[in-house]
Nucleic acid binder design. Structure first.
Lengths: 115, 115
DNA sequence: CAGATCGTTTGACAAACATCAAACTAAGGT
DNA sequence: ACCTTAGTTTGATGTTTGTCAAACGATCTG
Protein backbone atom coordinates (compact mmCIF):
# COMPACT_ATOMS: atom_id res chain seq x y z
CA UNK A 1 0.00 0.00 0.00
CA UNK A 2 1.89 3.04 -1.19
CA UNK A 3 -1.12 5.30 -0.77
CA UNK A 4 -2.00 6.18 2.78
CA UNK A 5 -5.37 7.81 3.24
CA UNK A 6 -5.38 11.27 4.73
CA UNK A 7 -8.61 13.24 4.91
CA UNK A 8 -8.56 16.61 3.20
CA UNK A 9 -8.75 19.53 5.57
CA UNK A 10 -12.40 20.14 4.79
CA UNK A 11 -13.31 16.51 5.26
CA UNK A 12 -12.19 16.41 8.85
CA UNK A 13 -15.09 15.82 11.22
CA UNK A 14 -15.01 17.14 14.74
CA UNK A 15 -16.57 14.03 16.27
CA UNK A 16 -13.94 11.93 14.55
CA UNK A 17 -11.09 14.12 15.75
CA UNK A 18 -12.45 14.10 19.27
CA UNK A 19 -12.77 10.32 19.18
CA UNK A 20 -9.19 10.05 17.98
CA UNK A 21 -8.02 12.24 20.84
CA UNK A 22 -10.18 10.56 23.47
CA UNK A 23 -7.67 7.86 24.24
CA UNK A 24 -4.84 8.23 26.76
CA UNK A 25 -2.32 6.44 24.56
CA UNK A 26 -3.11 8.52 21.49
CA UNK A 27 -3.12 11.67 23.56
CA UNK A 28 0.37 10.76 24.65
CA UNK A 29 1.44 10.17 21.08
CA UNK A 30 0.11 13.55 20.05
CA UNK A 31 2.02 15.17 22.88
CA UNK A 32 5.25 13.74 21.56
CA UNK A 33 4.94 15.53 18.24
CA UNK A 34 3.28 18.64 19.56
CA UNK A 35 6.46 20.60 18.95
CA UNK A 36 6.19 19.99 15.23
CA UNK A 37 8.83 17.31 15.10
CA UNK A 38 8.65 14.13 13.11
CA UNK A 39 9.08 10.67 14.53
CA UNK A 40 9.24 7.18 13.11
CA UNK A 41 6.82 4.48 14.28
CA UNK A 42 9.32 2.72 16.51
CA UNK A 43 7.85 2.18 19.95
CA UNK A 44 11.02 3.34 21.69
CA UNK A 45 10.61 6.75 20.16
CA UNK A 46 7.26 7.29 21.81
CA UNK A 47 7.82 6.07 25.33
CA UNK A 48 4.76 3.93 25.41
CA UNK A 49 4.27 0.36 26.60
CA UNK A 50 2.18 -1.17 23.86
CA UNK A 51 2.87 -3.71 21.16
CA UNK A 52 4.01 -2.35 17.83
CA UNK A 53 0.85 -3.53 16.11
CA UNK A 54 -1.20 -1.65 18.67
CA UNK A 55 0.88 1.41 18.00
CA UNK A 56 0.30 0.97 14.30
CA UNK A 57 -3.43 0.86 14.97
CA UNK A 58 -3.31 4.09 16.94
CA UNK A 59 -1.36 5.83 14.22
CA UNK A 60 -3.98 4.80 11.74
CA UNK A 61 -6.80 6.19 13.86
CA UNK A 62 -4.97 9.48 14.25
CA UNK A 63 -4.15 9.65 10.56
CA UNK A 64 -7.66 8.81 9.34
CA UNK A 65 -9.13 11.41 11.65
CA UNK A 66 -6.77 13.98 10.20
CA UNK A 67 -4.78 14.56 13.36
CA UNK A 68 -1.48 13.31 12.03
CA UNK A 69 0.30 13.04 8.72
CA UNK A 70 2.28 9.93 7.86
CA UNK A 71 5.08 10.30 5.36
CA UNK A 72 6.58 7.19 3.79
CA UNK A 73 10.33 7.17 3.30
CA UNK A 74 11.89 3.87 2.36
CA UNK A 75 10.91 1.43 5.05
CA UNK A 76 10.34 4.13 7.59
CA UNK A 77 7.24 6.17 8.17
CA UNK A 78 7.51 9.59 9.67
CA UNK A 79 4.65 10.96 11.67
CA UNK A 80 3.88 14.52 12.46
CA UNK A 81 0.99 16.65 13.63
CA UNK A 82 -1.20 18.33 11.02
CA UNK A 83 -1.17 21.44 13.08
CA UNK A 84 -1.85 23.95 10.33
CA UNK A 85 -4.79 21.96 9.04
CA UNK A 86 -6.21 21.41 12.49
CA UNK A 87 -5.81 25.05 13.41
CA UNK A 88 -7.52 26.13 10.21
CA UNK A 89 -10.36 23.70 10.55
CA UNK A 90 -10.93 23.74 14.31
CA UNK A 91 -9.30 26.89 15.64
CA UNK A 92 -8.21 26.61 19.23
CA UNK A 93 -8.97 22.93 19.61
CA UNK A 94 -5.45 21.61 19.42
CA UNK A 95 -4.07 24.33 21.65
CA UNK A 96 -6.69 23.62 24.28
CA UNK A 97 -6.00 19.90 24.24
CA UNK A 98 -2.25 20.29 24.25
CA UNK A 99 -2.42 22.69 27.17
CA UNK A 100 -4.19 20.02 29.21
CA UNK A 101 -1.74 17.26 28.44
CA UNK A 102 0.98 17.81 31.05
CA UNK A 103 -1.57 17.39 33.80
CA UNK A 104 -3.12 14.39 32.10
CA UNK A 105 0.23 12.68 31.93
CA UNK A 106 0.52 12.79 35.70
CA UNK A 107 -2.43 10.44 36.09
CA UNK A 108 -2.25 6.69 35.61
CA UNK A 109 -4.12 5.52 32.58
CA UNK A 110 -7.76 4.86 33.36
CA UNK A 111 -10.59 3.95 31.14
CA UNK A 112 -12.95 3.12 34.01
CA UNK A 113 -15.52 5.37 35.61
CA UNK A 114 -16.85 6.08 39.08
CA UNK A 115 -20.51 6.57 39.89
CA UNK B 1 -30.53 8.79 44.71
CA UNK B 2 -30.67 12.42 45.73
CA UNK B 3 -26.95 12.96 45.26
CA UNK B 4 -25.79 13.12 41.68
CA UNK B 5 -22.07 12.89 41.20
CA UNK B 6 -20.40 15.87 39.58
CA UNK B 7 -16.63 16.01 39.36
CA UNK B 8 -15.03 19.04 40.95
CA UNK B 9 -13.48 21.42 38.49
CA UNK B 10 -9.99 20.22 39.28
CA UNK B 11 -10.95 16.59 38.95
CA UNK B 12 -12.02 16.91 35.36
CA UNK B 13 -9.81 14.90 33.04
CA UNK B 14 -9.27 15.95 29.47
CA UNK B 15 -9.44 12.42 28.07
CA UNK B 16 -12.73 11.94 29.85
CA UNK B 17 -14.16 15.18 28.53
CA UNK B 18 -13.02 14.36 25.02
CA UNK B 19 -14.59 10.93 25.25
CA UNK B 20 -17.83 12.48 26.42
CA UNK B 21 -17.82 14.87 23.47
CA UNK B 22 -16.78 12.25 20.94
CA UNK B 23 -20.29 11.10 20.20
CA UNK B 24 -22.63 12.70 17.67
CA UNK B 25 -25.67 12.45 19.92
CA UNK B 26 -23.92 13.97 22.90
CA UNK B 27 -22.41 16.66 20.74
CA UNK B 28 -25.93 17.52 19.65
CA UNK B 29 -27.10 17.65 23.24
CA UNK B 30 -24.28 19.98 24.16
CA UNK B 31 -25.19 22.24 21.26
CA UNK B 32 -28.71 22.59 22.61
CA UNK B 33 -27.54 24.12 25.87
CA UNK B 34 -24.58 25.99 24.45
CA UNK B 35 -26.42 29.27 24.98
CA UNK B 36 -26.43 28.73 28.73
CA UNK B 37 -30.05 27.67 28.94
CA UNK B 38 -31.38 24.85 31.04
CA UNK B 39 -33.45 21.99 29.73
CA UNK B 40 -35.27 19.06 31.26
CA UNK B 41 -34.46 15.51 30.20
CA UNK B 42 -37.54 15.09 28.02
CA UNK B 43 -36.55 13.78 24.61
CA UNK B 44 -38.79 16.29 22.81
CA UNK B 45 -36.74 19.12 24.23
CA UNK B 46 -33.58 17.93 22.56
CA UNK B 47 -34.71 17.01 19.08
CA UNK B 48 -33.08 13.65 19.10
CA UNK B 49 -34.38 10.24 18.03
CA UNK B 50 -33.27 7.98 20.84
CA UNK B 51 -35.05 6.18 23.62
CA UNK B 52 -35.39 8.03 26.89
CA UNK B 53 -33.16 5.55 28.67
CA UNK B 54 -30.48 6.11 26.06
CA UNK B 55 -30.82 9.81 26.62
CA UNK B 56 -30.47 9.26 30.34
CA UNK B 57 -27.27 7.34 29.69
CA UNK B 58 -25.83 10.17 27.61
CA UNK B 59 -26.68 12.72 30.27
CA UNK B 60 -24.85 10.62 32.78
CA UNK B 61 -21.74 10.42 30.63
CA UNK B 62 -21.74 14.16 30.14
CA UNK B 63 -22.33 14.83 33.82
CA UNK B 64 -19.66 12.44 35.07
CA UNK B 65 -17.14 13.93 32.68
CA UNK B 66 -17.93 17.37 34.02
CA UNK B 67 -19.44 18.72 30.84
CA UNK B 68 -22.92 19.28 32.19
CA UNK B 69 -24.56 20.00 35.51
CA UNK B 70 -27.79 18.26 36.45
CA UNK B 71 -30.02 20.01 38.94
CA UNK B 72 -32.80 18.06 40.59
CA UNK B 73 -36.10 19.86 41.07
CA UNK B 74 -39.01 17.74 42.10
CA UNK B 75 -39.40 15.08 39.48
CA UNK B 76 -37.62 17.08 36.87
CA UNK B 77 -33.92 17.36 36.25
CA UNK B 78 -32.53 20.44 34.64
CA UNK B 79 -29.41 20.19 32.61
CA UNK B 80 -27.01 22.91 31.68
CA UNK B 81 -23.48 23.33 30.46
CA UNK B 82 -20.72 23.83 33.02
CA UNK B 83 -19.25 26.49 30.85
CA UNK B 84 -17.42 28.45 33.51
CA UNK B 85 -15.80 25.33 34.89
CA UNK B 86 -14.86 24.04 31.47
CA UNK B 87 -13.47 27.39 30.42
CA UNK B 88 -11.42 27.62 33.57
CA UNK B 89 -10.11 24.10 33.35
CA UNK B 90 -9.64 23.72 29.60
CA UNK B 91 -9.55 27.21 28.13
CA UNK B 92 -10.68 27.35 24.55
CA UNK B 93 -11.80 23.76 24.32
CA UNK B 94 -15.51 24.32 24.53
CA UNK B 95 -15.42 27.28 22.19
CA UNK B 96 -13.49 25.29 19.62
CA UNK B 97 -15.91 22.38 19.78
CA UNK B 98 -19.00 24.54 19.72
CA UNK B 99 -17.72 26.43 16.72
CA UNK B 100 -17.47 23.18 14.80
CA UNK B 101 -20.95 21.98 15.64
CA UNK B 102 -23.09 23.68 12.98
CA UNK B 103 -21.06 21.97 10.29
CA UNK B 104 -21.15 18.67 12.12
CA UNK B 105 -24.92 18.80 12.30
CA UNK B 106 -25.14 18.87 8.51
CA UNK B 107 -23.70 15.37 8.29
CA UNK B 108 -25.68 12.20 8.92
CA UNK B 109 -24.59 10.41 12.04
CA UNK B 110 -21.76 8.03 11.33
CA UNK B 111 -19.72 5.95 13.65
CA UNK B 112 -18.10 3.97 10.84
CA UNK B 113 -14.77 4.64 9.16
CA UNK B 114 -13.30 4.53 5.69
CA UNK B 115 -9.90 3.12 4.90
C1' DC C 1 -54.09 6.41 48.62
C1' DA C 2 -54.35 5.79 43.48
C1' DG C 3 -52.71 7.08 39.30
C1' DA C 4 -49.88 9.70 36.36
C1' DT C 5 -45.38 11.83 35.24
C1' DC C 6 -40.35 12.14 34.93
C1' DG C 7 -36.44 9.98 34.86
C1' DT C 8 -33.03 6.14 36.29
C1' DT C 9 -31.52 1.38 36.54
C1' DT C 10 -31.01 -3.14 34.91
C1' DG C 11 -30.64 -6.58 31.42
C1' DA C 12 -29.75 -7.93 26.86
C1' DC C 13 -27.47 -7.46 22.57
C1' DA C 14 -24.70 -6.04 18.70
C1' DA C 15 -21.08 -3.08 17.22
C1' DA C 16 -16.85 -0.88 18.13
C1' DC C 17 -12.46 -0.81 20.35
C1' DA C 18 -7.78 -1.74 22.53
C1' DT C 19 -4.66 -5.16 22.82
C1' DC C 20 -1.39 -8.89 21.59
C1' DA C 21 0.65 -12.37 18.64
C1' DA C 22 1.70 -14.20 14.38
C1' DA C 23 1.93 -13.81 9.55
C1' DC C 24 2.86 -10.84 5.96
C1' DT C 25 4.83 -6.91 2.82
C1' DA C 26 8.20 -3.86 1.46
C1' DA C 27 12.74 -1.93 1.42
C1' DG C 28 17.64 -2.06 2.56
C1' DG C 29 22.01 -4.18 3.43
C1' DT C 30 25.53 -7.89 2.83
C1' DA D 1 19.85 -14.30 -3.38
C1' DC D 2 19.47 -14.05 1.61
C1' DC D 3 18.74 -11.84 5.80
C1' DT D 4 17.41 -8.00 8.46
C1' DT D 5 14.71 -4.03 9.53
C1' DA D 6 10.23 -1.31 9.71
C1' DG D 7 5.80 -1.41 9.83
C1' DT D 8 0.99 -3.27 8.48
C1' DT D 9 -2.65 -6.69 8.37
C1' DT D 10 -5.27 -10.28 10.15
C1' DG D 11 -7.21 -13.04 13.70
C1' DA D 12 -8.43 -13.74 18.38
C1' DT D 13 -9.86 -12.07 22.87
C1' DG D 14 -11.82 -9.34 26.38
C1' DT D 15 -13.75 -4.76 27.37
C1' DT D 16 -16.46 -0.85 26.53
C1' DT D 17 -20.19 1.39 24.40
C1' DG D 18 -24.76 2.76 22.33
C1' DT D 19 -29.18 1.20 22.06
C1' DC D 20 -33.82 -0.44 23.38
C1' DA D 21 -37.24 -2.41 26.45
C1' DA D 22 -39.03 -3.37 30.75
C1' DA D 23 -38.98 -2.69 35.55
C1' DC D 24 -38.30 0.38 39.08
C1' DG D 25 -38.16 4.80 42.12
C1' DA D 26 -39.51 9.16 43.28
C1' DT D 27 -42.54 13.01 43.04
C1' DC D 28 -46.62 15.34 42.12
C1' DT D 29 -51.86 15.55 41.59
C1' DG D 30 -56.62 14.27 42.07
Amino acid sequence: MTHLFHPARDDMRISRVLAALADPVRLHLVAQVADGSERSCAAEEWGVQVHKSTLSHHFRVLREAGVTMTRVDGRNRWIRLRRADLDARFPGLLAAVLAALPEEAAHPQDRAAAS
